[in-house]
Simulated scan of single mutants.
Amino acid sequence: MTAIVEQDLKDAAGAGTIKNFVVEEVEAGYVLLTIFSRSNAEHILYTQRNRARTWANVNSLIEFILHYKPELPEVTIRLMRRSHPT
């Protein structure tokens, strides 16, 4: 998985090359994966400090996504598989 930064999202939004977003649940919250029109590979959003950017809840992440692709018809959400004690 390739890392991208917010400037990459701005550039892709301006060029119209964002195909889809995937929200993935991780231990620290939620991360954003972006799929561009030129490939089906998922690119994870990183901060300038070289760490995956995480959100505490899905609502704030969806608001972030809408800045870059307001007409996006759907977003895929992947939840972590949790083992339940028996």
Rank of each mutant, 00 (worst) to 15 (best):
R82H: 11
V75I: 15
L66C: 09
Q7R: 14
K19L: 10
A15M: 13
Q7M: 14
N40V: 07
T76I: 07
K19D: 14
S60D: 15
R38C: 05
M1H: 12
M1R: 10
A3R: 01
R49Y: 14
Q7A: 13
S37W: 02
A15E: 15
F21A: 05
V31C: 12
V23R: 11
Y46N: 01
L66H: 09
R53N: 03
H84D: 08
Y46R: 00
N59R: 11
D11K: 10
A3F: 01
A12K: 05
G29C: 11
T54W: 00
G14F: 10
A3Y: 00
A3V: 00
V5S: 02
W55L: 06
L66I: 02
Q48C: 03
L32S: 02
V58T: 13
K19F: 13
D11P: 00
I77Q: 05
A13H: 08
H43C: 10
L32N: 04
N57S: 14
M80F: 02
F21K: 05
L72S: 05
A13S: 15
N59L: 11
F21H: 08
R81K: 07
V31P: 02
A3P: 00
V75C: 12
A12Q: 02
T2N: 07
A41K: 15
Y68A: 05
H84L: 15
A52R: 03
K10F: 14
F21L: 07
V31K: 13
M80K: 12
F64E: 01
P70K: 00
W55Y: 13
A13V: 03
I4R: 01
L79D: 01
G29L: 09
S37C: 05
G16Y: 06
T47W: 07
M80V: 01
V58W: 01
